[in-house]
Simulated scan of single mutants.
Amino acid sequence: MKIGLTYDLRSEYLAAGYGEEETAEFDRDDTIDALEKALAGLGHDTERIGHARSLVQQLAVGRDWDLVFNIAEGMHGIGREAQVPAILDVYGIAYTFSDPLVMALTLHKGMTKHVLRDAGVPTADFVVVREPSDLQAVGFGPPYFIKPVAEGTGKGVTADSIVRNRKDLDAACLKLITAFRQPVLVESFLPGREFTVGLVGTGREARILGTMEVLLLENAEAEVYSYTNKERCEELVVYRIVDADQDLVVRQAEAIVLKAWQVLGCRDCGRADVRCDARGVPQFMEVNPLAGLHPQHSDLPILCTRLGITYEQLIGWVVESAQKRVRTGTTDQRIQAYAYCCGS
């Protein structure tokens, strides 16, 4: 197949004057190199597209692809991860990973927890705080855990994210709201074991790849899988493969993740995070349907490597899942067919 690559390259944004934390979710140059190499190894031809604006420009001059391998995060707006999928939907071009609805929903951690809680997926008590008066709705006691409602890569998560007294919650939330210009998610702090679970597939075909337990070393920021701990994971974190057949808690965590993945409608591949409460019971934290794909640094490829799954094999599974959505015909033919069906 002819596969286009959409992405936000961290080096480009840094060169344009954006900061290190602002660009933390964006991809490194060697991630794109690795993707191209893996796709070529699978027999596909690739073409670099780049960010959403570049995609728009190339579509406007008639560029077309059988499939777009989309890992673009987007820069602006709470629906930024939905931008590239929405553009590709307009042109009827298939792409990897989830659709605009899922991408927009899952970036907002509070909305995701609302949907999953209604579906019976266990998750910690929470309140979304947009302004100080919203704190009146916090009906559960400390300690609390706070983080920006729509960030990834641990952005905004530090040791200060654990708020141990109710009197300190107002100031802590206001600080985050001001810094990230978005609401804050306030949750009951979960003090137990933390897992990240990898998945592959869509709908009923989705399956668990495996699970890693996240263990923080003595020199790490304590009790939180923070931005700093993630950025310096090689020296601050130990990832331990755990077996659901040998560990009931892991088995429960994987069941929670698979249900959440299917309820939300996530596609192709990704991962989700689970942490245990004070009783040792796993609780859903968040899902990442657009998981990082750096071969050595991102959680999902790290998990696969520990399980003996090659990077090329992982990328192959993503393409195999997404390929089922590839439509026949050129872009012009697809647009003409759509116009005909709509009576235009």
Rank of each mutant, 00 (worst) to 15 (best):
I241A: 11
Q246N: 15
L293R: 08
S188I: 04
T310W: 11
Y227L: 08
G198Y: 00
T202E: 01
A244P: 09
T211R: 06
G280F: 08
I208L: 09
L216W: 09
I208E: 04
V197Q: 01
R204F: 08
H297S: 08
I302M: 13
W317I: 11
V200S: 13
R207I: 01
C304Q: 03
L290P: 02
L300S: 09
V238R: 09
I241P: 14
L258G: 00
V237I: 10
E223Y: 07
Y311E: 03
G292E: 03
W317V: 07
A220M: 09
E312M: 13
I208S: 04
D273R: 07
V263D: 01
L293V: 05
E187F: 10
F284G: 02
E194G: 11
D247A: 06
T305H: 12
R251C: 02
V250Q: 10
E221K: 13
E234C: 13
L293E: 05
R232N: 09
R267E: 08
C269S: 14
Y225H: 15
I208P: 05
V200G: 10
G265I: 00
E234L: 15
A272Q: 07
E312N: 15
V224F: 12
T310R: 10
A255Q: 03
E312A: 15
S298F: 04
R267Q: 12
V224E: 15
R275G: 15
T196L: 09
A291E: 09
L300G: 08
A272E: 02
P295F: 10
V319K: 11
A278T: 05
H297P: 13
E254F: 00
L264S: 15
V318S: 05
V250M: 11
K230A: 04
L199K: 01
E234N: 03
G201L: 02
L300E: 01
S188H: 12
F195K: 15
L290C: 07
K259G: 00
L209M: 08
V238H: 03
R267A: 12
A291M: 07
I256A: 03
E231K: 10
D268L: 10
E286I: 01
G203L: 01
T202S: 06
E194R: 11
V318G: 08
N229V: 05
A260P: 03
M212G: 05
E194C: 13
E231I: 10
E286G: 06
L209E: 05
Q246E: 03
P301L: 07
D243S: 06
I302L: 11
E187R: 03
L185S: 06
L199V: 01
S298A: 14
